[in-house]
Measured scan of single mutants.
Amino acid sequence: TGQSYENMVTEIMSMGYEREQVIAALRASFNNPDRAVEYLLMGIP
């Protein structure tokens, strides 16, 4: 849902990432938050 997506974005942003980076990582990871954080740390393949 939209609210849980926003919660994911906010939670990952709280780790120090910009909203645009978080959204790009979530898009690349098909909204998998664990993989999105991994992409933010290691780069999107």
Rank of each mutant, 00 (worst) to 15 (best):
Y17S: 01
E11I: 04
L41V: 11
L40A: 01
E6H: 05
A28C: 03
S4H: 12
A25D: 01
L40Q: 01
E6F: 13
R27M: 05
E18A: 09
A36T: 04
F30M: 15
V9E: 04
E38P: 00
Q3Y: 07
V9P: 00
A24N: 09
M42P: 09
R19E: 08
A24S: 12
R19D: 03
S29W: 00
E20Y: 02
A25V: 01
F30S: 14
Q21L: 07
V22P: 00
P45T: 11
N32L: 03
R35N: 04
S29R: 05
A25R: 00
M8F: 09
N7H: 07
L40P: 00
Y5N: 08
G2S: 11
E20P: 09
A36V: 01
L26R: 01
L41E: 15
E20L: 07
M42H: 13
V9Q: 02
Y39C: 09
A25S: 06
P45H: 12
Q21F: 03
D34W: 03
Y17P: 01
P45V: 06
V37F: 09
M42N: 14
T1Y: 04
I12N: 07
Q3W: 04
M42L: 11
F30W: 08
S4R: 08
R35M: 10
M15D: 02
R27T: 14
Q21R: 09
R35C: 07
G2K: 13
M8K: 09
L40Y: 09
N32K: 11
I44A: 15
V9F: 01
M13V: 05
M8R: 05
Q3S: 14
A24W: 07
P33V: 11
I12R: 01
M13E: 10
V37K: 15
T1K: 13
G2M: 12
T1E: 11
T1P: 04
A24H: 10
S4D: 13
R35D: 06
Y17C: 01
R27F: 01
V22L: 01
L40T: 01
N7P: 06
G2H: 07
V22Y: 00
L26T: 00
G2Q: 05
S29T: 13
V9T: 02
Y39W: 09
E38T: 05
Y39M: 14
N31L: 06
P33E: 06
N31K: 03
P33W: 05
N31V: 03
I12F: 08
R35Q: 13
D34H: 08
I44F: 09
E38A: 07
G2F: 07
A25F: 00
E18P: 10
E38G: 06
G43F: 03
N31A: 04
T10P: 05
Q3H: 11
V37D: 00
L40R: 01
V37M: 14
E20K: 15
P45A: 14
G43A: 11
T10C: 10
G2W: 06
S29G: 09
A28E: 15
A25Y: 00
Y17M: 05
N32H: 05
L26I: 00
G16C: 14
M15T: 09
Y39S: 13
L26V: 02
S4G: 12
S29K: 06
Y5K: 07
R19S: 03
E11C: 02
N32C: 08
R35H: 06
M13L: 05
Q3F: 15
R35S: 12
A28M: 09
Y5T: 09
E6Q: 06
E18F: 04
